[in-house]
Design a protein around this nucleic acid. Structure first.
Lengths: 265, 265
DNA sequence: CGATGGATTGAACTGGTTCAAGTGGAGTGG
DNA sequence: CCACTCCACTTGAACCAGTTCAATCCATCG
């Protein structure tokens, strides 16, 4: 039996890596048709989904419980304090996960991309809001069904636990960033993480990084203001470390220097 | 079979609560002698440990793999990048979990107390350093043994997964605090969390809260400096919201007002 | 082509830091 | 038992990184 699952862990920008997985729990990218939902004809190696390479019958039972849908940019997918009925998997597009204070101050706790999951690490209520950054295609599963299936397929449960731990690790890194890094260090760290991610997803794109989210999203992710983000972008440009092509495309000209600045800016 | 485990989730100051556990996975406090280690004679209702109310033989096998030890205040229990051989359970005392930047800036990601676990949410290396704040009694188990036992006792694995998710939730709250709250809000939030915790642990102590950690630990937990912490303490005192008895004992005189300040200081 | 909304830039301001000095309590040794 | 030391904590004052407020730029879209 192969458990076929990826994502989730990318929450908070720390991609899950496949090292160390035991054979019987090994994870594979979907290569062609999505096996768990016949309605999905868009599967490619970049569409990483909650596919279970179980036997055909097991697979069919999983297929039946999933629903595909679509959201436009800025639409809410699920919100804080709402009953956590589903877990979600992103087929395409980008999503932000955030929490708010009563007066509207916002902290984005993670950005999610194709293949990522969310909603699993919740209790009965969602503890955060998920919104579409770009147009997104989403697939959702009833949470209880998934959680029940951990007993039947322990490898699935172990995998999800493993990913949750990875995610926890990466939130600790983000706490270090939020609590102790200055604006320049924060932005450099962010750019490098986006770069690593994009390098993995579309190999060979060199040092061109796509930044789907707005300056204000980046600000709320890094605990800064839009203005500071903007100034730091210009700053890094003046230093000759990055080039900008519009607001959503960045060329990293010297990743080594950026790495150095990410810890000692 | 009863799985008998508590703690871990308190990392990042968000105590795990017992609501919603199914009967067969229900968690109980150790009441008297610690069943998993005959060397432990100090068990009380406040010593919450990795005890497994399994049958006697199962229990014995768990007992054999644990080791008790002791650390004095300021001693390191485990450190970043060290091989993650063990998981730890705190019998008594307080522990801080932290990460450092190369130049020595530190972020404390959580404080841990009696009954809490750490080291479980790691891969092959510890991703943080754990140090004793006070003198501590610790109990440790080989990680691999525990993780292997998840297959044999799925309820144990589910429980640990559950606690890890709770912990993840609380790190999101801490990210909101670090990224978006000001100094006064941060300290109020901190005091209230310590208060809730102490209320649970030693009921009936009213609004007196014990603060075992130093000002500098609090600063590194809240992303501030010692001076700011100190000033905010005096500030809250001048506002008549708290009284101070030395540096490590605080009386919360108006928890409602503190709650209000924790979100809109 | 004008309107809209994100992104940038400038200038004043401020919350929290930094640096520096002072305080107090616990431990040590004479 | 007091004097001395040490170290954590507090307090004060200057400073500055990042915010706030305001103006402008620029790309997109009806």
């Amino acid at each position: 039996m192969y458990v076929f699952i990826q994502g989730l862990s990318k929450l908070s920008m720390s991609p899950y890596r496949f090292s160390g997985s035991k054979p019987e729990t090994s994870i594979r990218l979907a290569t062609n048709n999505c096996p768990y939902n016949s309605a999905c004809d868009g599967c490619s190696s970049r569409h990483i989904s909650l596919c279970n390479v179980l036997d055909t019958d097991e697979l069919k039972s999983f297929s039946k419980i999933s629903t595909d849908f679509h959201k436009n940019a800025k639409q809410v997918i699920c919100s804080e304090d709402e009953d956590a009925e589903y877990i979600y998997n992103i087929r395409s597009g980008s999503v932000r996960i955030s929490k708010m204070l009563s007066d509207g101050r916002r902290q984005i706790t993670g950005f999610l991309f194709a293949g990522d999951f969310f909603g699993l690490s919740c209790k009965d209520k969602y503890s955060y809001t998920a919104e579409a950054i770009t147009n997104v295609e989403i697939c959702r599963f009833p949470r209880t069904k998934i959680i029940e299936s951990f007993r039947e397929f322990p490898a699935l449960g172990e995998r999800v636990f493993d990913m949750t731990r990875t995610e926890l690790d990466s939130t600790h890194d983000q706490m270090l960033l939020l609590g102790r890094k200055n604006a320049k260090e924060k932005l450099c760290t962010f750019l490098l993480t986006m770069w690593e991610k994009s390098g993995r997803l579309n190999e060979g794109n060199g040092d061109e990084v796509d930044i789907p989210m707005s300056r204000s999203d980046i600000a709320d992710f890094l605990g800064l203001t839009v203005e500071t983000i903007s100034r730091q972008f210009t700053n890094l440009h003046k230093l000759g470390l990055i080039d900008l092509d519009g607001a959503h495309k960045v060329f990293l000209k010297d990743t080594d220097a950026l790495s150095a600045l990410a810890e000692n800016g």
